[in-house]
Design a protein around this nucleic acid. Structure first.
Lengths: 121, 121
DNA sequence: TACATACTGAACCGAATGGTTCAGTATGCG
DNA sequence: CGCATACTGAACCATTCGGTTCAGTATGTA
């Protein structure tokens, strides 16, 4: 369904909207970690951290595997390709929109016979 | 405060985690719009849409100006530079992480070949 | 002046979030 | 066996979210 990608963006952006979860991703970028490791690092209960990991896992950003007593968390198979793509596309639209504005400003300036240098980098 | 940038990422990723709001951003990329315009386009009440616009405005992604009865919404001065940067940084870490894995796999494959040769010898 | 339009704000609603505690279960280890 | 570790699940809690209705206010227009 078309809804699928949309729901995925919902989930991943929501996952990224929490500082703790962004921190967990950065941490897992450095090394795999158990729930206990992460809970300690971020000063919260095991249960609390497990929920965060659940959110990240649901969003496909983290995978976990339990061996013995220990559940090890690592970065998921999915990168943030779709999210990066959405943002990139948006940035293009945004740039275009302001280029348009710049053009209008340029036009006005030229009409005023003012030698205007580009304002926006 | 240092917390500022963090809170901003919180706000903008949260803003992006809703399909309606992403739609509003895309729409405003095409043309400025009133609250009424947007409410109609996304099939919800004025009040509901105003809340969404409020979230986007709070995140700095949209600006609005009221002239007469009409509040016009347009893309904000902020693009998604910080968000893009965060994701890009993450993607690099992610890539590095999997390159590492690839190397390990390569290493294993090489050893297997060597072992295989040894056995055959 | 009268009426329609466009928004605003308060109040409410059910569901989701981010966290906790507490009471398990499963596992490792001496 | 007996105890510590590591997680799990249910229940609870306050807050936020996404949406509504309803009752305004302000503005444009005939």
């Amino acid at each position: 369904m078309v809804q699928y990608a949309k729901a995925r963006l919902d989930a991943s952006f929501a996952a990224l909207s929490d500082a703790t979860r962004r921190g967990v991703l950065e941490q897992l970028g450095r090394a795999d970690a158990s729930i206990t490791d992460l809970a300690e690092k971020f000063h919260m209960t095991l249960t609390g951290m497990k929920k965060h990991v659940g959110v990240l896992e649901q969003a496909g950003l983290v995978t976990t595997e339990k061996v013995g007593r220990v559940r090890t968390c690592k970065l998921g198979l999915r990168g943030l390709e779709e999210e990066a793509a959405w943002i990139e596309r948006y940035r293009q639209v945004w740039d275009a929109r302001f280029d348009e504005l710049d053009k209008i400003v340029e036009e006005l300036k030229r009409k005023e016979k003012v030698d205007g240098r580009k304002k926006r980098e």
